[in-house]
Design a protein around this nucleic acid. Structure first.
Ligand SMILES: [Mn+2]
Ligand SMILES: [Mn+2]
Ligand SMILES: [Mn+2]
Ligand SMILES: [Mn+2]
Lengths: 143, 143
DNA sequence: GCGAAGAAATAGCCTATGCTATATTTTTCG
DNA sequence: CGAAAAATATAGCATAGGCTATTTCTTCGC
């Protein structure tokens, strides 16, 4: 069955969706990781955020400005970064999805290291519907 | 098993990898789709490329300029776009990976429509190692 | 309490991707 | 053939996300 190709309009919608996802992917990674830092170290410093993201410090500062602009984080000059309620909620959701994606990859035979590496990018494109399917598959696999 | 968190350096590497993937994702989508157009219509016109990508025509023109710069496509003003050998090779690889990702998603219980939607973004983050795991899983699932 | 060190902010630059508006070229058709 | 229409290119603008260099603020240690 050579599954017929999508209509041009459908395909355009898919690409548009992928672009939208991309626009929030960076925010998701930042809030998840800032949540980690607060949990592990009690606070999230700009220097640590930059180090974990693998970017220069001004790059992290600019990203934090965007998080604040979008209501996901708060901070005062020369002080640590905190998550708003919305930010913390997003962090929790993103963290859970990340774990599920890694587990799903491992469950279908991907080596753990590779699963972690690929999941960092894949996770952002996993819709709620797909996430539920992953969870159901994992529940079934666990008997 | 609370799988210990990655070292900051490891995590930074993962994020860096995801950023690199992102930089080539757009090129991959363009070459795959240009290949489709050539196969279906005999040629790839800028207007059709823009329509399928869901972007304005000048946006497509600019992307084509980048494809040319990177040796993946050729074109002359007011004429169609063609893939170079490297471009055609990439298109084939990307097309195969796209199919495998969709099949894998369906195999673990994702509805076909959703699989197509999510795959458009996921595919770019699927490494060779993960792709091989997907293929092995699908082969096994087919008994 | 004060100066050095460290952390964060700011300035200024770059590329990639979007867009709209407009100019130019090719194609079509009366 | 030649004008109108269609397609493509170009100009100019915006935002996101990188960077380095420099300034400013906080913290630490004597
Ligand atoms: Mn991620
Ligand atoms: Mn993640
Ligand atoms: Mn894609
Ligand atoms: Mn694709």
């Amino acid at each position: 069955m050579p599954q017929d190709s999508p209509s041009p309009a459908d395909q355009a919608d898919r690409f548009a969706r992928a672009r939208e996802v991309q626009a929030v992917a960076l925010l998701e990674d930042y809030v998840e990781m800032i949540g980690d830092l607060i949990a592990e170290m009690g606070e999230a410093r700009v220097a640590d955020i930059a180090a974990r993201m693998g970017v220069a410090q001004p790059t992290a500062t600019k990203a934090i400005a965007r998080l604040k602009r979008e209501g996901l984080a708060t901070s005062r000059p020369y002080r640590g970064v905190f998550l708003t309620e919305a930010g913390a909620e997003m962090a929790e959701r993103v963290r859970a999805r990340h774990r599920t994606v890694v587990e799903l990859l491992i469950a279908v035979g991907v080596p753990a290291e590779t699963a972690e590496l690929d999941a960092e990018g894949i996770e952002h494109h996993v819709s709620d519907r797909t996430l539920r399917a992953f969870e159901a598959f994992l529940a079934a696999a666990r008997h």
